[in-house]
């Protein structure tokens, strides 16, 4: 059996026809083809067929392909993937907004609470929320919360609850009111 009969060189013919063999391998196959009529005929067919296929292939618009491709993952923000393939939960935007509002309300309410504990004037801000019956709470003279009765604590909590909604006044006006400057229109 000849070498080409064992397909060792014959298998290289398509690569030789496409000029895709390294120089050394190409020379070895060409040397064989020069002395083998069967492989020479086969190589001629392969070269013709390859040229034929190339001739009927239209040019491809690679720029259009690139435009159609998706953006690389590394070029856009990605969600962190935890081990085990679970995605980290994203905090919804409305929750963030609610949390920010809560912080703002708490900040605005702080001077009022201090005022209550220091015996200063209690500022009632018209926030549009229905008012609740108030019980005078007197913490003057160093009294603390433990000195208050149930009714007084309930009244105090009710007062604080009034600030859970959206504040209807500007922070500056609120500050002036707390500091005793009632020059503004409250």
């Amino acid at each position: 059996m000849t070498e080409c009969g064992k397909d060792t060189l014959r298998d290289q013919l398509p690569l030789l026809a496409r000029d895709a063999l390294a120089a050394e391998a190409a020379a070895r196959v060409r040397a064989h083809v020069a002395g083998c009529a069967a492989c020479a005929a086969e190589l001629a067919v392969l070269e013709r067929a390859g040229a034929l296929f190339t001739a009927v292939t239209p040019a491809v618009d690679t720029a259009a392909i690139l435009r159609a491709l998706p953006t690389p993952p590394g070029a856009r923000p990605v969600l962190t993937v935890q081990r085990g393939g679970r995605r980290q939960a994203r905090i919804p935007q409305y929750v963030l907004a609610a949390a920010a509002s809560l912080v703002l309300v708490a900040t605005l309410a702080l001077p009022t609470i201090r005022s209550v504990f220091n015996g200063g004037p209690v500022v009632v801000v018209d926030s549009g929320i229905p008012s609740v019956p108030t019980v005078p709470v007197d913490l003057v003279g160093g009294a603390n919360l433990s000195d208050l009765g149930v009714d007084e604590l309930t009244a105090l909590l009710a007062e604080l609850d009034r600030f859970d909604g959206t504040v209807a006044v500007e922070p500056v006006a609120m500050r002036q009111a707390v500091n005793g400057d009632f020059g503004g229109d409250l």
Partner: peptide, 14 residues
């Protein structure tokens, strides 16, 4: 490409 290099896509397409 996976790390964000768009040019790599160009080479692969070519």
């Amino acid at each position: 490409w996976l790390s964000g290099d768009q040019r790599a896509a160009g080479e692969l397409v070519q």
